[in-house]
Design a binder for these strands. Structure first.
Lengths: 258, 258
DNA sequence: TCCAATATTGGAGCGCTGCTCCAAAGCTGC
DNA sequence: GCAGCTTTGGAGCAGCGCTCCAATATTGGA
């Protein structure tokens, strides 16, 4: 009796890889990095561990899928959406940052991609560790190519000679992932719970770090001792863009007139 | 009967934080990232877990100490050793890379520091994940300041204006850690054992990655598809230095005539 | 010299983890 | 209606970090 009509709603009840990954992301967001366990996932989905492993196979694989999902949502779409106007509203990523489309310079596009990842890490603090881990564990696995492609296209749009495409893109990607990793401010012991990351917390955290640098032996750490206050007053986002700008300058200065 | 004479040898039998950290590093080197467990450590030191926790307190703390030890050995000494000639041969780090001392440009010194970390990661593949993890978990904790100081001094020696010291050093450090993280080639599933990392293995690994890029949908990944062969032929170390050079160019080009 | 106080040791055991295994249940096509 | 597949959920296993504690060295004062 009309099983087709209500099928889509029934679908949501059925366990699927997508639903598991979705629940994993929510669990990571709300409970923090250590909150994703098979048992917690099973309870949240009202099922058992066996059912989960039937769809997912591996905890690392699940983490990889969760990371890939969030990263894909944070980056501009791979295909220009004008090509296939089949379903005009569905495939638009809901929480993607407003990308300046194809207007604007390649430099701006690179900045936009970088900021997209930066913001994604702010929204999902567990993402930083995952990006770093997957960068080391499977460098060319699932996530990196997606980022590489987004950056590389813009590098190609700059006047970079072809033989430098790989090295240039790699440099940008490595910087982005390295800088992004640091900016998920998880003050050491404060793990396990959610991450409200209020402005007061951040200020307090930077204060403590700055004081720690100032308390270092000036004979061992003269530089840190000097710039401790500069570190306290820095703005993450601005500092991140400064780094991008520095590299972009190096790129365009290397071959100024294509 | 003469307990003082043989005391130094007896010291080596006594459990101490140093001995535990040393054993941890060896365990990580020989057994791989997952090989460091309290039980394995206890067996290797012929003791129990309780004794270990009496000295170390925490698994994360132990990892942090192991990382700090290896990083300290890979970087140039903080103090210029001419100041305290008390013990001329002992404190020389045994496996430190040959640093070009104070001769040479600041750019060369930065390259030397970066390569020191790069080589340390090659020698201790677990270090990549640890650097990344500690970068995110305790950004200003134990290891980062050490690296920051080494790089920052050289940034100061360049013609960088004082207000840019922090941003410039951060950019270099972030790139170094990001790039370093990727270059500990752990081909995904091949974890658990030691990492001989022969040239053949590396070539095979790059071949597979290159083929994977070529097999991607050219409509989704035109850039990766294009530079797949360039990726296969790249040399990690050279590519790493290219990135450093790019950033150094950006730094010096930004303020060309101090 | 001896003894109490303290520091250090090693292992049993707790609660948790990822993961496997399997009987039961649901679904599908003949 | 039934056979053959997929999917489910939970019991259970080996391993983990870590705590606790009795037993043992070591030390300092009388």
């Amino acid at each position: 009796m009309g099983t087709q009509t209500r099928q889509s709603q029934r679908r949501r009840q059925v366990l699927s890889r997508e639903r598991i990954v979705e629940a994993a992301v929510e669990l990571l967001d709300t409970e923090g990095e250590g909150g994703l366990t098979v048992r917690a996932l099973a309870e949240r989905l009202s099922t058992g561990s066996g059912a989960i492993y039937h769809h997912v196979g591996n905890m690392g694989e699940l983490l990889q899928a969760a990371t890939a999902t969030v990263v894909a949502a944070a980056l501009p779409p791979l295909r220009t959406s004008t090509v296939s106007p089949q379903n005009p509203d569905a495939p638009r990523p809901p929480d993607a940052p407003q990308t300046p489309d194809s207007t604007g310079s390649p430099e701006d596009a690179i900045r936009a991609v970088a900021l997209g990842l930066f913001d994604a890490v702010l929204e999902h603090p567990w993402l930083a560790a995952q990006l770093a881990a997957q960068l080391t564990r499977s460098p060319w696995g699932a996530v990196t190519p997606r980022i590489f492609e987004s950056i590389g296209r813009q590098v190609r749009a700059l006047d970079v000679p072809r033989r430098d495409w790989f090295a240039t893109t790699s440099t940008l990607v490595h910087y982005i992932l390295g800088a992004t990793a640091q900016n998920a401010q998880t003050p050491d012991g404060t793990d396990g719970g959610p991450f409200p990351e209020t402005a007061a917390e951040r200020s307090e955290f930077l204060d403590a770090a700055s004081r720690a640098w100032q308390d270092l032996d000036p004979d061992d750490y003269p530089f840190l001792h000097d710039i401790a206050d500069q570190m306290r007053e820095h703005e993450d986002r601005e500092q991140f863009l400064t780094g991008i700008g520095l590299i972009l300058t190096g790129i365009t200065a290397g071959a100024p007139a294509g």
